[in-house]
Structures are given as structure tokens and as C-alpha cells.
Nucleic acid binder design. Structure first.
Lengths: 154, 154
DNA sequence: ATCGTTGCAAAATCTTTGCAACAGG
DNA sequence: CCTGTTGCAAAGATTTTGCAACGAT
């Protein structure tokens, strides 16, 4: 029960973030921690989380999920992304910036960082007279699995 | 009244795109053509267009604006972007791909292209096993005008 | 006991759709 | 004319908010 366990002790993690350790917040944080460890599905929407909680017989409202997500984002526990255009998805914020490539068939998301791209972005912002605050780079394509399926169908 | 005037003859442009030249479509296309020439405000939302038409005493419904925008996008006349997260904005599609940097203070949008970034994106997609279909790179920052204002306030 | 938190329902926002009236070719 | 198009109103989808009840300390 020490700080080294951070990341697996929802109650302590919440208190460290200055948030009361309530049932909804702990359950939601657990879902993110579990998702973080999984190969796929690190990115969850409010609806995803709500459905999972309901299926676990947790009595919760969708509004609460939204409120908790907002609080977690403000606390730097999670990050919000808008991939398509419609719904927001969230993933744990490990402090390391990264960009995404999203499969347009199955929705799978892979993450990457490219120092060269980051460097050129800074340069371009400077040239255009902007003080760069952030950026969002999302690429869209067909992942290896879906490409295989595509070939099999032919 | 010839093809060389394309870009300034809404009626002909619409027919070329396979769309009937109706009043709403012509008015909306004109708005985009005018916006295209302006230094600022090349990016318009459905609401922007609707308000402008209403202010010009054109009898039109917001639903029609949305329908026309969808048709124009399908016809390759305009491109849709999602900068923030909430509303979509559109700009004329000149056929040349470009990315955007958006001022977080005043909403001003500048466009740019960087061959090196494009090249590395292709490379990364390949490494991750994706067949790249597209990408969206938006940077966010404070533009030169807003930086000046910021300094004056201090 | 206190003050933040929750669930519910209602509202807000942006966008799409059903439908009868209308208009372009 | 005939079919596509429009305006209006209503529905959808996602997210936010008001409020009274509830719960952690």
C-alpha cells in the first residue's frame, strides 16, 4: 500500500490527484488501468465506459461518467482525443506525448512518436509567427489485419 | 461565359459538378468563392453560412445548408475539417493537400505543407503495417497578432 | 453535519431526416 | 410535367446542466 503501487491502487491515485475516492471514480479509473495494459482498446468513449459499468451491475448514470472524465482530464489522469469527428475517446495520460494512426475498418489505434515530425512542426509554427501550444496528428488507414481480410475476400 | 471562368461562374461550376443550379447552391458556392479570396475566414461552418445567407435576406433553412455542404463535399468542391471538436468547418477544395495551424485565441487558420512531414508519415504507416489513406494534422498556438496583444496587456 | 458527488431528467448543441410544397430543366 | 430540391419541424446523437437526494470524512 505504498506509492510504488501507483497505477494499480485507484483509491490512492485519486487522492493524489486531489479527488475524493468515490465508487464511480474508482471504478472508472480501474477500467482505464485495465485498458492501459491491454494490447487493444486503450481508447475508450464515455459510452464504452458506461456500458461496461452497467454490465458490471454498477449503478451509475451516463452524466456521471461524463463528469468524471472531465475531472480526470483536468487532473491529467487521462487525455481526450477526437479521432473521427463525432465522439470523444479517452486514454490514460502517461505523460509521454504521442500521435495516432487509426484503422478505418476496425477502429484499432496504434501510437507513435517521430522526433523529426515534431521538430518540423516547431519550425513551421515559428515561421508562421505562432507560439506553438500543441498539435494533433492522426493518420487514417487500413491496419495489417484488415488488409489480410481484404485480400482473402477477393 | 466559358470554362476559363470556372471558379467565378457558380451556375456553370455546379453543372460541371453534376448538380442542378438552384438558388441555395449558387448562393452557398458564391460565399465559398468569396471566402477563398479573402485573407482570413477561408474556413466556414454551416452556421456561418446560414447566418450570412439570412443576413442577405435569402430564404433558406439550416437543414438545406447542411445538405448542400454534404453534396459539395461529395462533389469535391469543398473539404470538411474538424479543428476543435465541436463544429465542422469547410473550405474550398483546390486539390492541393495542406495542413493547418489554428490560433487558440482568435480562431485564425493558416495553412501549410511540409514534404518532410508527409514523407515521414508514409514511412511510419508502412512500419506499422498500415495502408495509409489520409491524415489530419492540426497544430494549435497563438498567432502573431494575438501574441502582440498579449504583450501589450502585460 | 457539511459540502462535494451522484442519478435522473431536462436542456443544449450540432447535424440529419421525413414530408409535403416547390422549382429547375 | 417530373424528379430532384427545399423549408420546416421533428428526430438523433453526443454532451452538459439543474436539482434534490446521497455519501465520504
Amino acid at each position: 500500500m505504498n506509492k510504488l503501487m501507483a497505477g494499480h491502487e485507484p483509491e490512492q491515485d485519486l487522492k493524489n490527484a486531489g479527488l475524493k475516492a468515490t465508487v464511480p471514480r474508482m471504478r472508472i479509473l480501474e477500467i482505464f488501468q485495465k485498458a492501459q495494459e491491454s494490447e487493444t482498446q486503450r481508447h475508450l468513449s464515455a459510452e464504452d465506459i458506461y456500458k461496461q459499468l452497467v454490465s458490471e451491475n454498477v449503478d451509475i448514470g451516463l452524466a456521471t461518467v461524463y463528469r468524471v472524465l472531465t475531472q480526470f482530464e483536468a487532473a491529467g489522469i487521462i487525455m481526450r482525443h477526437y479521432f473521427g469527428n463525432d465522439r470523444a475517446t479517452y486514454e490514460m495520460d502517461d505523460g509521454q506525448h504521442h500521435d495516432h494512426i487509426v484503422c478505418t475498418r476496425c477502429g484499432r489505434v496504434e501510437e507513435f512518436v517521430d522526433k523529426e515530425i515534431e521538430k518540423r512542426q516547431k519550425m513551421i509554427a515559428e515561421q508562421l509567427g505562432f507560439e506553438l501550444e500543441g498539435h494533433a496528428l492522426s493518420m487514417y488507414g487500413i491496419c495489417s489485419d484488415c488488409r489480410k481480410k481484404k485480400l482473402e475476400q477477393k
